[in-house]
């Protein structure tokens, strides 16, 4: 894979078959190519999910075919089909049983928004109650669309992933990246409408006050 760059680095002579790269990139590369989906198939989309894994479409070509029905073994939940009131607690429990790092694909209109079932029993989008990484539109989506979603998710994992899982830290994600602070220097932007920046500024002012 091209993500782990080989060759010399900073004048250091490396022996043969040794590559140097970012640890994050290596972890991401491993994670994205060993996605084990947990098919949370409830309805029609589940049949298309089966079609994706069966003959002709063959998800195995994209490195995510090891369907495991135990949440403890999986790291990608594919919610295929509508989730109703009675099922949502089950969905949440299964999501909580999955090990980190974990991702969620909401497959189909019903899982994403409730779809045509705007009724008393159907949850209007699972993202109201659990985190979702990727939405696949369609009713049901074609297998090609699901395969594309998995490829996109792999791409996302490669781009954003960190070995310590900082990308899953919702509070931490709101803070400015350290590199950005170093590059751009202290905050200069207008903080009047951004409470996050206001807090950062206040913290910086406190730190300065404590020093003096």
């Amino acid at each position: 894979m091209a993500v782990v760059h080989s060759g010399s680095s900073g004048g250091l002579e490396l022996p043969e078959n040794v590559m140097v790269g970012q640890l994050d990139a290596l972890a991401n590369w491993c994670r994205k190519n060993s996605l084990w989906p947990m098919p949370f198939a409830t309805a029609c989309c589940g049949i298309e999910l089966m079609a994706t894994g069966a003959a002709k479409h063959d998800l195995a070509r994209f490195g995510a075919e090891v369907f495991r029905f135990s949440p403890r073994q999986c790291d990608l939940m594919i919610v295929a089909g509508r989730v109703v009131m009675k099922m949502l607690p089950v969905l949440q429990r299964i999501w909580q049983q999955m090990h980190e790092p974990k991702w969620c694909i909401s497959m189909g209109a019903c899982a994403s928004t409730g779809g045509v079932f705007d009724t008393y029993a159907v949850v209007q989008g699972i993202d109201r109650f659990i985190p979702v990484d990727m939405y696949v539109p369609g009713c049901p989506p074609r297998p090609e669309q699901l395969i594309q979603a998995i490829i996109d998710l792999q791409d996302k994992i490669q781009r954003e992933g960190t070995i310590t899982g900082r990308e899953f830290d919702t509070a931490g994600r709101q803070l400015r990246k350290r590199a950005l602070v170093e590059m751009a220097g202290p905050l200069t932007s207008d903080a009047s409408r951004n409470p996050m920046l206001q807090r950062e500024l206040a913290a910086a002012a406190d730190a300065v006050a404590a020093k003096t």
Partner: peptide
Amino acid sequence: YLHSGFEKIGEHLSFNQYVTVTDRMNY
């Protein structure tokens, strides 16, 4: 665990519209 209120929806859709919902019955 998959009760979605199909019959209730049938009272709010016309005869031609409801066919889309029947698709999702025995899918």
